[in-house]
Amino acid sequence: MRPGLRLWFFPERVREEGSTPDYRSSLANERTFLAWLRTGLALIGGGFAVDQFLPRLHGSLRLAFTVVLLVGGALCALRAVNHWVRCERAMRRGEDLPLSRFPTVLALCVAGLAVAVVALTLLGRTD
Rank of each mutant, 00 (worst) to 15 (best):
A107G: 15
V117S: 05
R62N: 15
A116G: 09
G124N: 11
D51L: 10
V50C: 07
L113N: 08
L43C: 11
L97N: 03
R93S: 14
A28Y: 12
P98V: 09
N29D: 12
L54H: 02
G18Q: 02
G45Y: 03
L27T: 14
V115R: 06
A107M: 04
P98H: 05
D127P: 10
R15V: 13
R15L: 10
G124M: 10
M91D: 10
R92I: 07
A107Y: 03
R38P: 00
L37F: 04
T104V: 14
R101D: 08
L97R: 13
G94Y: 04
F102R: 10
A114G: 06
F10N: 05
V71F: 10
F9I: 15
S60G: 01
A111L: 15
P21T: 12
G73Q: 01
E30R: 06
M1L: 09
A64K: 04
L43W: 07
D96I: 03
T121Y: 07
L97C: 08
F65W: 10
A64Y: 11
F102Q: 11
G59M: 04
A35T: 01
L122Y: 00
L7A: 13
P3Q: 05
V118G: 00
G124D: 06
G40V: 08
R125Y: 06
A107L: 14
L113F: 02
I44H: 08
L123T: 14
T39N: 07
P21S: 07
R24E: 13
L7Q: 06
V68Y: 07
F33Q: 02
P3T: 07
G72M: 06
L27M: 09
S60C: 02
G18K: 12
R31D: 11
L41M: 11
N82Y: 04
P103R: 04
L78F: 06
D96W: 08
R56A: 13
L37I: 15
T39S: 14
T121R: 01
V50W: 00
V115A: 14
L120M: 12
A119M: 11
R62F: 04
V110E: 02
C76V: 11
L75R: 09
G73S: 04
F102M: 02
V117R: 00
R56I: 01
T104W: 14
Q52G: 03
A111Q: 04
R38L: 03
G112D: 07
F9L: 13
P11I: 05
V115E: 06
V110P: 11
E88C: 02
G40T: 09
F53C: 05
L97P: 01
A28I: 02
V117L: 15
